[in-house]
Design a protein around this nucleic acid. Structure first.
Lengths: 338, 338
DNA sequence: CATCAGATCCGAAACGTTTTGGAGGAATGA
DNA sequence: TCATTCCTCCAAAACGTTTCGGATCTGATG
């Protein structure tokens, strides 16, 4: 490996001068600089980032903590979309991304904070973490700049990006009410996801405002999985067979619910309207195409990256950012005719 | 930040001893070791990987070069699936993954090899790169251990994983021939993808063996995109309206082709049979569901990671690995009745 | 007693950078 | 002439680890 010392020897100047020449300082003669550049090109030199990071105490690296990066989660484009967004923004900067394995199966029991310290990441983007994760607080209250995706926490070094889940759910509620539905159920994720809490809140408030009875007794959890959605749909129907519409807190659960209901001989949307959330790729292709709330997932990722890098490079304060969402009516829901 | 020196000061031993204690060497008394461990826990010490990597010349990091990690590529689960596979395998080891931004839009014009040297990755996994990429050879012939996905090149430090594309395409050819098709077209990716070359070869050879005329004049390139597939399908049909079956080198192109043909009033599979390749998530949900060749994409990724890490940890030779594929008949193809 | 072996510890160098605090010389101004 | 300023350069320290080559001490062996 060719180091800065080799360049120094090769050009007959000191290591200091080489470093300063390469980094564009003004106190080096143009001729020597040229000579150094030339040597660098000749010897195919590239600086050792590790050594640089060590002394500069900046690694120009941002970490991505993703708990659910498993075989399963691929179906759900959400995570991937966010990652792509982060990546696309980072690509315009000089930051690289390292993915953290926080697989529980791993023997090494390390906290997120430890991982970050060890790898010396400058900041970290966190997504898909449960609100009851013991390490969540550790990192939010820690001293590593971080941006949370869909977890509304702000700390001294922690900001977050999300969509307005309350508004989104509220729009769904208004839509269903407008369509004449009165007996409505909901399939939620789990109790430890902020989005679940918010979507429930927004949905309930608006329905109640519209004079429609709705409370947590009309909610079943589907754990954000297709299978879970299917089971929740059946439970919901068993509890109250008069239901004419179901709002699902994720598209994947909605798809599971649709399949379960269809195989029970229930027609969608004629008998029951289904509305999802996320607008994953599948929802456009599934039959009937899923009515849902679209989020700018890619934007969520790039907004997170933008906020984090702004915090790092310009000492910006941690903030909160909201990316837009949009209600999309497709064919899995319709006006109730009774 | 608490360093190894702090531990040394705190416990009254030398830095050397602390290091050796922490790393499990035998020449340190059990009592001192305990004392050191205790102090480490107390001060919440975690080692600085950067410093360690610098002296050890091993970063315990593998790089992932992905050229097409863009908004678009998300639709195509392929890339993501492979990534997940790599990640899942790496998660069981002590390697972390860093994603390399090789976005061309980037001002910093660096070659892959440079990126690898700078970040001091121990090895690298490469996918989605075109065979005419000028930097491909640089890295294959370089001295950084690497594993290529779907690019059959072997070098001193380079191995690869792929599926048997020739066999897969051959299966499709036999299937179509068995179904009575005689006038067959193909939509390929582009000329600079090995998989395209192989799939064409396998397809042509087998068709010819079965006495069916097929050559490159019956092939249109769709550039692996949905839009490209649609356009290619129309070109194909224009050239030869008697075509009864089209083999697409990727599902995404197949879906594009189906849409284009359908909107021309052509029924699938009644008028034309369509067969794809990859078995992306969508192909199951699209109507009619796509007949295709399924690849164990996740396995492709984890096989790549396994091979690379084996090369790194056990000085294994670069090899070639093939993961299984499977022909899957769905409803976009049928027996020809004439 | 001298020698040896084993257990336990440590100083200092090394890894490849950046940065601090100057040094030496030439040009300029008084 | 001397002092000042500018330009160009450099030696050495620092970053946080690991590791090489001993050093010191205790007991045991002959």
């Amino acid at each position: 490996m060719v180091t800065i010392k080799d360049l120094a020897k090769h050009t007959g100047v000191s290591v200091t001068t080489v470093s300063r020449a390469l980094n564009g300082y003004s106190d080096v003669n143009e001729n020597t600089r040229k000579k150094i550049m030339e040597a660098a090109r000749l010897l195919n030199y590239s600086p050792n980032t590790l050594a640089r990071s060590l002394v500069m105490k900046k690694s120009k690296t941002i970490g991505m903590l993703i708990s659910g990066f498993l075989r399963e989660s691929v179906k759900d484009n959400f995570l991937m979309d966010v990652m792509a967004g982060v990546h696309d923004f980072a690509a315009q900067t000089d930051y690289d991304i390292v993915i953290f394995n926080t697989n529980s199966s791993k023997q090494r029991e390390k906290t997120y904070a430890q991982l970050c310290k060890e790898r010396q990441v400058d900041g970290v983007i966190i997504q898909g973490i449960r609100t009851d994760d013991p390490y969540l607080l550790e990192i939010v209250e820690g001293d590593i700049p971080c941006v949370l995706v869909d977890i509304p926490l702000i700390g001294k070094w922690a900001g977050y990006v999300s969509t307005d889940n309350i508004a989104g759910a509220s729009q769904v509620a208004n839509y269903l009410a407008d369509q004449g539905h009165r007996s409505i159920g909901m399939i939620n994720g789990h109790d430890f996801a902020f989005v679940s809490q918010e979507r429930f809140t927004g949905f309930q408030k608006t329905l109640n405002k519209r004079g429609i009875t709705f409370d947590s007794s009309r909610v079943e959890n589907g754990n954000f999985s297709e299978q879970g959605g299917a089971e929740a749909a059946l439970r919901l129907l068993e509890k109250d067979p008069t239901i004419t519409a179901v709002f699902c807190a994720s598209d994947l659960m909605a798809i599971g619910a649709m399949n379960a209901l269809t195989s029970k001989g229930i027609r969608i949307p004629e008998d029951i309207s289904i509305v999802g959330y996320d607008d994953i790729l599948l929802s456009r292709y599934v039959r009937p195409a899923l009515t849902t709330v679209s989020q700018d997932t890619h934007g969520l990722g790039s907004a997170a990256a933008k906020m984090l890098i702004n915090m790092l490079d310009h000492e910006g304060q941690p903030q909160q950012a909201t990316v837009p969402h949009e209600f999309i009516e497709r064919s899995s829901s319709k006006r109730l005719n009774r």
